[in-house]
């Protein structure tokens, strides 16, 4: 068949293909740029370092959870219990820290998410129940437990040492009193933690065998199973990872606010899922890029900021978030259409 080999033409059409493949990225970057322009126009305060570093600190919680959610969604599942896990983690940790010290709170807090993740993953894989339903159930359980822990009250009085993590900034913590020209290096610690989480998840997804398995399981679990991949294990691990990020986010939230209540993190799951989809991860699994999730989160957070700055009635904000989610899914479909056109 040697005469049948068509030599690929190197370079030919390559840039067009690259352009098509990166269409989604270009699209989300364009939306981001547009938002930044509109926001700077609306408010002169927007582009100040104070506002930006505030935004960084604020978005850290959703950023971290979105990293875990990206993993789960690539594996073809969803976890809508993250909001409740954030609440249960932060209330439990607050209760333990106030009564038994920081270590007890940290250890117990960080274990709650992975424990729920194992439970979610076990039910999903062993009984073949959609993760949406399973996590809806565990979400209610976790939220209820959060209320049990707090008795419906706010738990305050978290040790000051612990609050440094959530409230500190890089240069302040390192002991610089005069930041001056290096103001821009004075990044909020939670944001740095979030970036570290993204680096780790990115490495996990793109540089390890586990990451490849996550993509394969999400794309076609039968093919993965027949290739000897233990699909249930991979899915349980993914549910654990998103639980871990939810707990980490819960601890950061507690540290930043300094107090906790059972009602925190309500609706967080949908904001996170919207951000992941805007970042180009498929709702059907098998494809996605965790770094692009960052763009999705920034877009969601900036839109919220925009709604605040433009003084739109607060009751309209969820309406706007809903519109954004649907728009994101439509853009996802458009993106696929363009990528598949030849």
């Amino acid at each position: 068949m040697s005469d049948a080999v068509v030599k690929p033409a190197p370079g030919q059409n390559n840039w067009m293909d690259t352009l098509r493949r990166s269409y989604g990225l270009i699209q989300s970057l364009a939306v981001l740029a547009l938002l930044i322009i509109v926001l700077s126009y609306l408010s002169p305060r927007f582009m100040t370092w104070i506002n930006i570093s505030n935004l960084m600190a604020q978005m850290s919680v959703i950023l971290i959870v979105a990293a875990g959610m990206t993993v789960v969604m690539i594996a073809g599942e969803l976890d809508i219990s993250v909001g409740a896990i954030v609440a249960l983690t932060s209330t439990t940790a607050a209760y333990l820290m106030v009564n038994y010290g920081i270590t007890a709170g940290l250890v117990a807090g960080i274990l709650i998410g992975p424990a729920f993740g194992i439970l979610n993953g076990f039910i999903v894989t062993q009984f073949k129940i959609p993760s949406f339903i399973v996590t809806l159930g565990t979400s209610m359980m976790a939220r209820s437990l959060a209320f049990v822990v707090t008795g419906g009250m706010v738990i305050a009085g978290v040790p000051a040492e612990f609050k440094i993590i959530g409230q500190g900034k890089l240069l302040d913590v390192l002991g610089f009193t005069e930041t001056g020209a290096f103001e821009y290096l004075n990044i909020p610690l939670p944001f740095l933690i979030a970036i570290l989480v993204y680096a780790l998840v990115w490495i996990l997804l793109t540089r390890t065998a586990f990451g490849k398995k996550v993509y394969a399981v999400g794309a076609n679990s039968t093919v993965a199973m027949l290739s000897g991949i233990r699909v249930a294990r991979v899915k349980i691990a993914c549910m654990m990872i998103v639980g871990l990020t939810a707990s980490l986010a819960g601890l950061l939230l507690l540290s930043r606010v300094g107090a906790s209540q059972a009602d925190s993190g309500r609706g967080l799951e949908f904001e996170v899922i919207a951000a992941v989809v805007i970042g180009g991860t498929s709702l059907y699994g098998g494809q996605g890029n965790v770094l692009r999730t960052i763009i999705g989160v920034v877009i969601i957070v900036l839109i919220r900021n925009f709604l605040n700055l433009s003084r739109i009635d607060i009751f309209w904000q969820d309406f706007a978030t809903g519109v954004i989610i649907i728009t994101a899914v439509l853009l996802d479909a458009l993106q696929k259409y363009i990528a598949s056109r030849r």
Binding site: A216, A219, V223
Partner: peptide, 8 residues
């Protein structure tokens, strides 16, 4: 259905 991952 049981062999390839088409987009990989």
């Amino acid at each position: 259905r049981e062999g390839v991952l088409p987009d990989f």
